[in-house]
Design a protein around this nucleic acid. Structure first.
Lengths: 129, 129
DNA sequence: CATAGTCACTTTAATTTTGAAAGTGACTCG
DNA sequence: CGAGTCACTTTCAAAATTAAAGTGACTATG
């Protein structure tokens, strides 16, 4: 009986979360799916930060493999997909809000109110103040 | 007058936070400083996840440049430093707790109670359940 | 019918980051 | 003197990111 190959660096929940979401792009894709009504490849790619197409493709595959995103065809011939968060994917909203709150308080980023569906505090160009 | 070179990819608070903390190691260093009483280079390096020395060195420099960590000499000849979170660094606790909560619920990682100073739920080897 | 355009990717190649190991400098201890 | 400790830095191969170009399956236009 072989040792069950561990998927994660450690037992720590923070390390495990970083193993799957710890990069500069994944949570931006989740943000766009969660709040900004972006659901096609093109819409996701057109976001302000301009993720490279190969990375977007790879990240969507990973999020689907994790069960955080699912896709369904919105067109045949050629088949094209619409991506959406699953229930598990939507559970990341608290995390996004916390990250946004910190970035607003400490890095001068904007504040988005998902309830209102709009920005309620503008960003400063470079940092806080 | 030159355009003030923007430090961040975008005005979004989430993108800005990921610009500075979005990798697999930075928040583990913060975790160890915040909760696990690890303050010297050696202690930080000895953590379960085994960060490479060059990365630890670079991350500590970045965290200091961001004002999230400060160091003070605890010994002369040779001078050696103890690293600690600043007030701004300690403000990341909510974020760590949120990340930990998500990783516990969805990836089966352990739960640490900072109040009690101990693990209150063990991790499962590979995932949730 | 040929050509241009759209969408969703994939491929390619240069650059950057990472990871693991080994090395360095300033000491202390035996 | 030689070994050991601590806090790094250096080195270099491997992996990830970036930007650009290319592909395939169509639809719309002249």
């Amino acid at each position: 009986m072989t040792q069950p190959q561990t998927k994660y660096r450690s037992r720590c929940s923070i390390a495990r979360t970083l193993d799957v979401l710890g990069d500069k792009w994944t949570l931006l894709v989740v943000r766009d799916l969660m709040w900004h009504g972006k659901h096609t490849f093109q819409e996701l790619q057109a976001s302000e930060e301009h993720i490279a197409a190969n990375l977007l493709s790879e990240r969507l595959k990973r999020l689907m493999a994790l069960g955080l995103v699912a896709r369904e065809a919105y067109q045949d011939r050629p088949v094209r997909y619409r991506y959406a968060l699953t229930e598990a994917g939507r559970s990341l909203e608290g995390l996004l809000l916390q990250i946004m709150g910190w970035g607003h308080a400490h890095l001068g980023g904007g504040l988005y109110d998902p309830q209102a569906g709009r920005t309620v505090a503008d960003a400063t160009p470079d940092g806080p103040q």
